[in-house]
Design a protein around this nucleic acid. Structure first.
Lengths: 196, 196
DNA sequence: ATCCTTTGTGTATCGGCCTAAACATCACCC
DNA sequence: GGGTGATGTTTAGGCCGATACACAAAGGAT
């Protein structure tokens, strides 16, 4: 029933992701510093991210190797075109996700931002764009937005209070709305050689 | 404008996450094996995840230390209550996300599953539940679902073709719908020669 | 010229996650 | 007994990302 997750096709894509969570934040820090201060040095980045200068130095030297960061003649840090694109993509994803969680789903700000920050570098461009499209659809019509918000306000757990059949559950014990799955899970394999 | 991402409050929560991507898949593999075979051994897990037996052995010994995995008297692997909960939460998140991406956003199955798999262990319980709630709202009414699908079918990039003001953009140069944010650039990072 | 602070880098170490390879068990079979 | 194969663990690596600590270079202040 739950094979596709573990069939060896998808689960390693996590590590193959284009960019690392921390790398994304180094890029975004450089970008933000150049916007606010006008320049960015290793020390500034380290300070902003609250890591040691050593850590920042090592991380940034990796980013240089990957072609995302370079230096100007005076050794100030620069983002390459590609680096800027990565930084902006991740920042963009963060804004989309946190806005979606907070303003559509009604999640509290802290959780919304925490979740968004964890996922920002993992969402594909296409999914992000489509999510924007959905949000725009929902939020562009006041009445529609109000209806969605009304629905989310009555958020509870479980399926029971929904009179008509829940469209999400293919089988009764496979309810997406109840977190634990919670079936009793059959017990031990009864000793002896079941294999062979 | 883009400070909150990097203010040192959120960005480290990624590493503080309860569970690692690979750890989640070890748990889910044990769970799935016990469901399909009725038992799970180190070798079975290694095979399912396509890792070496050594890797599986080491990973599982960590999971035992964390109290998520135990053994029955015959050394078959068991999930503890807590382990089951983690496994089910992540599996659950995967199903929610992939279904949302595919059936609401209209993302292709491959991208939907890949994105879902990357994010499954990072989404909080609350966000997941609320996402289910939203999906149920959208999909429970046929007409509403059809309208959303119709909207997603006309998915494109950019803001221009929407006559009324886009509710997502606070400032014109901060359009959530154009991936590159403010600057002149716009497409995804490298990965395939799509430009230049 | 010398001191001292700032800045950047290098080294050692750690944990996560993998491989390959050696090793230890054990069960079974003749 | 002595093979043989399957199973699990350990060890030695490698890569990555983080830390702490020490060191090097540059520049201003005296």
């Amino acid at each position: 029933m739950s094979k596709p997750i573990n069939d060896g096709t998808y689960w390693r894509e996590f590590e193959k992701n284009d960019i690392t969570h921390s790398a994304a934040h180094y890029l975004m820090a450089i970008d933000a510093l150049r916007e606010s201060l006008g320049y960015a040095r290793v020390t500034d980045v380290a300070e902003m991210l609250e890591v040691s200068r050593g850590a920042a130095s090592m991380a940034i030297s990796q980013l240089k190797k990957r072609g995302w960061v370079s230096e100007d003649p005076n050794r100030f840090l620069l983002l390459t075109e590609e680096g800027k694109q990565m930084a902006h993509l991740v920042e963009h994803n963060f804004r989309i996700l946190s806005k979606f969680f907070e303003e559509v789903l009604g999640v509290g700000k802290d959780v919304a931002m925490s979740d968004a920050c964890k996922m920002e570098h993992l969402m594909s461009l296409e999914t992000g764009q489509r999510l924007v499209w959905l949000m725009r659809y929902i939020l562009s019509d006041e009445e529609r937005a109000a209806q969605v918000h009304q629905n989310m306000k009555s958020f509870q757990e479980g399926c029971e209070e929904l009179p008509n059949a829940c469209p999400l559950c293919e089988t009764p014990d496979d309810c997406l709305a109840s977190p634990a799955g919670s079936d009793t899970q059959q017990q031990a394999p009864e000793k002896s050689s079941k294999k062979k």
